[in-house]
């Protein structure tokens, strides 16, 4: 068992525990702040998986903008954010069963398919910005361009949705 494995297991545990606190937290603001811990731990997992650029993009976009956007939306709607502001629906027992069964099923499928596989730490190719830029702008340039159109459409859609209607 190498040092990378141990650190990975520890950070994975941090990610899972903070994700559990996200979904069980009583207050929405606490859930959003625990999400920052989860996303940071996942960024650490990306670094350990030699995905350097992806980790930085995760920190910049997820922790930097998505969480801030969430907090902004909570402030803009002036919803109550005190204790008991994030209650559950009547579906909770069924949701627990479905989520647990899905997790077990996914784990079983992964174990059946990739149970004994090992990531060879001497063979990994570090995902630097140069390599990923090469991959995106040579091989994946069409999805990249389509994605820019999707972002533009989402921008326009968000503006239209939040604009107050004119009579």
């Amino acid at each position: 068992m190498t040092a990378v494995t141990v650190v990975f297991a520890a950070m994975g545990l941090v990610a899972l525990v903070s994700a559990f606190l996200v979904v069980t937290s009583d207050q929405i603001i606490h859930a959003a702040l625990w999400l920052v811990v989860t996303l940071g731990a996942v960024a650490g997992l990306y670094v350990l998986l030699a995905a350097e650029l992806v980790a930085w993009v995760q920190v910049l976009i997820y922790m930097g903008s998505v969480v801030v956007l969430l907090l902004f939306a909570l402030m803009l709607t002036r919803t109550p954010t005190g204790p008991g502001s994030a209650t559950v629906t009547r579906n909770q027992p069924l949701a627990t069963v479905v989520a647990g069964a899905t997790t077990v099923a996914l784990g079983a499928v992964m174990w059946a398919g990739f149970g004994g596989e090992v990531i060879d730490e001497d063979e990994v190719r570090v995902g630097t910005a140069a390599r990923l830029g090469d991959a995106i702008f040579r091989t994946w340039v069409l999805p990249f361009e389509v994605l820019s159109v999707v972002l533009l459409a989402a921008l326009v859609g968000a503006i239209v949705l939040t604009r107050r209607g004119e009579r």
Partner: peptide
């Protein structure tokens, strides 16, 4: 694990 927790939040939370 992350997927299961996210699925629980989608199905069970009210907000």
């Amino acid at each position: 694990g992350l997927f299961g927790l996210g699925l629980y939040a989608v199905l069970a939370r009210r907000h």
